[in-house]
Computed example of a mutant assay.
Amino acid sequence: MIKFAICDDEPLMAQELAGHLADYMKENLITAYSVSSFSDGRALLDAIDRFDVIFLDIQMEQPDGMETAKLLRRRGDHSLLVFVTVLKELVFDAFQVEAYDYLLKPLDRARFKQTMERVLRSLDRKTAEDIVIQRGTGCEVVLLSDIVYCEVLGRKIYLHKHDGTVSDYYDKLEDLERRVDGRFFKCHRSFLVNLDYVRGCQDGQVLLAQGERIPASRLRERELTQAL
């Protein structure tokens, strides 16, 4: 699941971006993706979700796009940032916040396609296959594909795996969220779930492949349905 975000204070521009994105994904037969739209930088910064790719306007009310990018990087966000703006003179400033690309308005469809091709190649290289968890002086390698869901209790993370075993270690869920890939969805403030094992969502609960149920917050239930 690739998670895209569009942050632009011009509704028509945001719709145009979303349209280009939908057309590209359809042409390339990619269905496992989601798109979230934000009308300003503060809304993006306040979002619970983490995104693989963010299309970010620069000229917005404070925090503008550049300041929003700086705040994202400062808190450890490693999303691919693609600035979308009329201000071509700011291209060099964009690279101070590790921008991935820079698109000028009005959007050129061919240029957008080139950017998306590069984005997908980069995401393929970034896709994690496993994580290493530390326990005292030892460690354990856990395949992401084996994890059904992750739960935080107190100061510990519990990784519930498809074979019924559970691995636990000390960490924060926010830190784990940065290490896993787009197949994991934060359905609740205490749970990350692997969408590959989700079979539905109903009445505030996520239904898992082996019959288990975990909670989904009211605010996240609709987003989970869209992600599925």
Rank of each mutant, 00 (worst) to 15 (best):
D52V: 01
H78W: 03
K105L: 11
T68K: 05
E67C: 09
L103V: 09
S79N: 08
I54F: 05
K105C: 08
A94N: 04
G65D: 08
D46N: 14
F92I: 09
M60D: 15
F92C: 06
E89A: 00
Y100A: 14
K70C: 10
D46T: 11
S79R: 02
D64A: 12
L90R: 02
L44Y: 00
Q59H: 12
V91T: 09
L81V: 03
D57W: 00
K70R: 15
I48E: 15
D52G: 06
Q62K: 15
V97Y: 04
L90H: 03
E67L: 11
S79A: 15
D52I: 00
G65R: 03
Y102V: 00
T68W: 04
L71F: 09
F55A: 09
F51N: 01
P63L: 02
D46P: 05
E61A: 15
D77Q: 03
F83S: 04
L80E: 11
L72A: 05
K88H: 10
V82W: 02
V91S: 07
V84I: 12
F83R: 02
M60E: 15
L80I: 06
P106E: 07
A47V: 10
L107A: 12
L44T: 02
A47G: 11
L45Q: 05
D101H: 13
D93T: 01
I54G: 08
L90I: 01
G65M: 08
L90F: 08
K70H: 10
L107P: 05
I48S: 15
M66K: 08
F51Q: 00
Q59I: 06
V53H: 05
F55T: 11
T68E: 08
E98W: 08
E67D: 13
Q59M: 13
Y100L: 14
D93S: 07
I48V: 15
Y100Q: 14
R73G: 10
A99V: 03
P63A: 02
P106W: 06
L56F: 04
E61R: 13
V84E: 02
L107R: 08
